[in-house]
Simulated scan of single mutants.
Amino acid sequence: MPPTDASTEADTDPAARVAPGSGPDAGTRTHTGSDPGAATDCEDTLDLRLPDELIALFARGTERPGDAAAEAGEPWGFADAGVGGVGDPWAGDSGVGGGDLLDRVGGWGPVTTGVGVFQLVPVRPDRDAPLVSRWMNDPAVAAFWELEGPESVVEKHLRPQVDGDGRSVPCLGVLDGVPMSYWEIYRADLDPLARHYPARPHDTGIHLLLGAVADRGRGLGSVLLRSVADHVLDKRPSCARVVAEPDLRNTPSVSAFLSAGFRYSAEVDLPDKRAALMVRDRALRDLL
């Protein structure tokens, strides 16, 4: 089971947002040539070779847009295409989320929200562990995620997901080109959580933390939770419900899920906490 759910505070002004800082502010928690077998009834053959210039042109055409951006100092690869711009530099990423268990989270693309253009970008530990580790070392985050300490603690948490079968995909939440939150999108029906509630096939779970203190308590979490939950339902037609299990003690998190259109379903006793089972139903998404 992923750690615990992120706390996102209830909102007073859903549209208001202060740009996240670059420091350790954090929120709270939880994949040519000819055929040698062809007919040879002609004695003479013609050995054709493409010009070097043409080969180089083809090679450039197969590069990911994000590669050039990373070389230019844009580590999240948005310099050329931009989030929501022409082309999605992450759509062809065969890394995390490359399997079928979550319908390729890495290729879902951006979504327009009331607070900006948002995209889930699968985590690359070599690139993202330092940032996520700084967020996890905020005391408010550590109280629920319990991943504080050296960077290796976060790497140990990320690696099984990144190298696993795709049932849980850790992501950075990138808002208007700025990484500002950490998410885990996971198959709740394939998670140990399923032992504690009447799971249905393809139930999809969410964990979230907001990275910057300035992004908490302003309703930003509720806006993003609603947008991401609906994005899951749009991109996963086999999924009828998005679920979450915030710690009951984490009142701001429970409130944020309620404001995001989730309904309180039950209290569940998990190995590490007593949780509120929150559910956003496809059938009720236009009513809540």
Rank of each mutant, 00 (worst) to 15 (best):
P3M: 14
T8D: 04
T8A: 13
A10H: 08
T12S: 11
P20M: 06
T30N: 12
T32Y: 12
G37V: 09
D44L: 15
P51M: 09
E53V: 15
E53S: 15
L54Q: 10
A59R: 15
G73M: 07
W76N: 09
V83F: 02
V86S: 12
G87K: 05
G99E: 12
L102S: 04
G107D: 04
P110R: 00
V115E: 00
V117K: 01
V117I: 05
L120R: 01
P125E: 09
P125C: 09
R127I: 11
R127V: 14
V141Y: 08
A142L: 09
E148H: 13
V153D: 09
V153Y: 09
P160S: 09
V162N: 13
V162D: 11
S168Y: 07
V169A: 06
C171Y: 05
D176A: 05
D176V: 05
G177M: 03
G177C: 02
P179V: 00
W183E: 04
R187Q: 05
L190D: 07
D191N: 11
L193V: 14
R200S: 10
T204D: 02
R216V: 01
G221R: 00
V223M: 02
V223H: 05
R226Q: 04
A229E: 02
P237I: 03
R241E: 06
V242K: 04
A244R: 05
P246T: 07
L248F: 05
S255D: 10
L258I: 06
L258D: 00
A260S: 07
R263Q: 08
A266D: 15
A266F: 07
L270M: 13
P271T: 08
P271C: 08
A275F: 04
A275K: 07
A276T: 06
M278Y: 06
A283M: 09
A283I: 08
R285D: 05
L288A: 11
